[in-house]
């Protein structure tokens, strides 16, 4: 029994199985919302209301021919998608989904917030490497843009995630979530940080307005230009999983986590992540892609100062409370 729980934790919930199924569902929700906002249907025919469309897309990609460019570094080229996938799935294990106040998840430890943020920024590095090792002009430009963008959003994101942690007085996701479950009004103090985190998550996921690294009309597929078949499927799935993990992280830090054990926790997880996915979809629909220089200027001129402001607010509230 003592062994069974970690295995279930790793493989079923919130591990691999749940993550993959839920991420395809989230992609469907995102596509459907995006389509309806544009006054069209979105996926319709695969499954009920097209709910299986993301799965069908992945299956189709897995069945496609897998081409490795002659000039590419073949070992790196093939290893990177799997590596990135593993990292993001690892990050998902730290989300406090299966927790009781008394018995937190088996791998949770004080400071896991930082670990999740770190694990989420690794795929960005892998995207860069993927672009660089493809040795295609468009891939290289895409890879360089990935890194340039990283310097834009990473620090505001970290600052925005820190302020609720400062207020809660802990670096542990479970404890932050429990703190806000006990003091729900204090969540309002982090509203600004929440918005900054959502915008930064959009940048991390490389979606409009921040899909600069793989801007289709400019540099074809960016870092993924040379990827096809199975490897591209991995990268696509990776995007969905990253969206789930990112949304889960923001929900755990800002929205009071997922209280109440297994099933109520699951319900809270779905509700809260879908709310964030809705915000991401609305942001995607309402904006146009910006240029890389505009993105950097925006994040340092607006996001970073506002995140610092948020941190100050958190510190002041913390100071006046104690």
């Amino acid at each position: 029994m003592a062994i069974l729980k970690p295995i279930l934790y790793l493989l079923v919930y919130p591990g691999l199985l749940f993550l993959l199924v839920y991420s395809t569902f989230v992609e469907w929700v995102d596509r459907k919302l995006y389509a309806r906002m544009q006054n069209r249907f979105g996926p319709l025919h695969t499954g009920r209301a097209g709910i299986l469309q993301p799965v069908a897309d992945i299956i189709k990609l897995f069945a496609k021919e897998d081409i490795v460019p002659e000039r590419a570094d073949k070992r790196m080229f093939s290893a990177l998608p799997v590596f990135a996938m593993a990292i993001v799935c690892t990050a998902a294990l730290y989300l406090p989904v299966w927790h009781y106040q008394a018995a937190p998840s088996p791998i949770s430890f004080p400071g896991d917030l930082i670990v999740v943020v770190y694990l989420l920024s690794l795929p960005t590095l892998i995207f860069f490497l993927a672009g660089w090792h493809s040795t295609n002009f468009f891939s290289e430009i895409g890879g360089v843009r990935v890194l340039t963008m990283l310097f834009g959003y990473e620090i505001p994101l970290l600052l925005a995630l820190l302020s609720p942690a400062v207020l809660a007085g802990s670096w542990r996701l479970v404890e932050i979530a429990v703190f806000y479950q006990n003091h729900p009004l204090l969540m309002l103090a982090n509203l600004l940080g929440f918005l900054i985190a959502v915008i930064c998550l959009q940048a991390k996921l490389e979606r409009v307005p921040f899909d600069i690294p793989h801007a289709e009309t400019e540099i074809v597929g960016g870092q993924f230009t040379e990827y096809s078949g199975r490897k591209l499927a991995f990268f696509r799935l990776l995007g969905d999983v990253e969206m789930v993990v990112g949304a889960g992280l923001i929900a755990a830090v800002f929205l009071g986590g997922f209280p109440g054990g297994l099933l109520p926790g699951l319900a809270w997880f779905v509700v809260k992540t879908l709310f964030i996915v809705f915000l991401l979809a609305a942001l995607r629909a309402a904006t146009s892609r910006i240029r890389i220089d505009q993105m950097i200027a925006f994040s340092w001129r607006w996001l970073a100062p506002l995140a610092v402001l948020q941190l100050f607010i958190a510190i002041i509230i913390k100071g006046s409370a104690s």
Partner: peptide
């Protein structure tokens, strides 16, 4: 956009 969310798609 939000208004369209609750309208019937034109497709």
């Amino acid at each position: 956009l939000l208004r369209s969310l609750f309208k019937k798609p034109v497709t």
